[in-house]
């Protein structure tokens, strides 16, 4: 094996060992989050701040910092976090996840936070409205889809009718806001 390959192997082993080293969640809120798909990774967060340095929203805003939000979860500020609109600043672009060296996905953690916020009645109005539209019509833009656009579609040789419908969402609608079964 050449030196380069050996070095790569050592680095890989080190990395594997590092990502295996989990911290136990320090608050019941962190434990709660760790039960969601990919939420378990919160245990790996070392609070290094790469996510905050990376995040395009943090760059433009002075209140959203993914590392800090994770810290609030780790120390158990459950009420503050769920009531706050800060978890809703994350656009799920997942740049932070791509760069995090510890295998944490802040985007998925905040997804779980928002889920809890919604089930406890803290969803922002804009969000509730969007969900209601999607679960009534089956898609988001039924209202915006006008005759004019149908004409433009026809002019381009595209089908006027889009065939979207609400058959499937009718069935799932009642499940929403009731939480998971």
């Amino acid at each position: 094996m050449c030196n380069f390959a050996r070095a790569a192997l050592v680095i890989k082993e080190k990395k594997d060992a590092m990502t295996r080293e989990l911290h136990s969640p320090s608050s019941s809120f962190a434990l709660e989050i760790s039960l969601f798909p990919n939420g378990e990774d919160i245990k790996k967060c070392i609070q290094c701040g790469i996510c905050s340095a990376t995040c395009p929203v943090a760059f433009a805003s002075n209140i959203f910092r993914p590392r800090k939000l994770i810290q609030w979860i780790l120390i158990g500020k459950r009420e503050e976090v769920l009531k706050s609109d800060i978890p809703w600043f994350c656009m799920t672009c997942r740049t932070c996840e791509e760069r995090c060296q510890e295998g944490v996905s802040p985007a998925e953690i905040f997804q779980a936070v928002r889920h809890l916020a919604i089930s406890e009645g803290y969803a922002p109005e804009a969000f509730k409205k969007m969900v209601d539209i999607i679960l009534t019509d089956g898609w988001m833009l039924k209202d915006a889809f006008s005759d004019f656009i149908e004409d433009d579609r026809e002019a381009l040789g595209l089908d006027r009718d889009l065939h979207w419908n609400n058959e499937f969402v009718k069935m799932v609608k009642k499940k929403y806001f009731d939480g998971e079964e």
Binding site: W88, M91, Q111, M130, I134, W139, H163, F168, G179, E180
Partner: peptide, 14 residues
């Protein structure tokens, strides 16, 4: 009859 893919924030609902 495509249905909404429930992207981004929709996934936090449930």
């Amino acid at each position: 009859n495509e249905t909404c893919c429930a992207p981004f924030w929709m996934q936090s609902l449930d």
